[in-house]
């Protein structure tokens, strides 16, 4: 499923905030932070079907 943009011009700020949050972490710590963040975002989405669709879409690109 194609995902349209919902952040608009705030996208750059969100991206920058993500990178800033990773500064100073080891790679293992970064992965753990990403895991936490993904689970928190899934909870915020709050809809199991949508989250499962997103999981499938993200996974599909792993096999490119």
């Amino acid at each position: 499923m194609r995902q349209d943009d919902k952040l608009g011009t705030e996208g750059d700020a969100v991206y920058a905030a993500l990178l800033t949050a990773h500064e100073g972490l080891s790679e293992a710590e970064s992965h753990r932070m990403n895991a936490r963040l993904v689970l928190m975002l899934a909870n915020q989405v709050g809809d199991a079907d949508t989250v499962q669709q997103l999981i499938a879409d993200a996974r599909a690109l792993a096999e490119d």
Binding site: R2, Q3, D4, D5, K6, L7, G11, L61
Partner: peptide, 8 residues
């Protein structure tokens, strides 16, 4: 694939 990522 995703328009949202193009924006980033």
């Amino acid at each position: 694939h995703h328009p949202f990522a193009r924006r980033l």
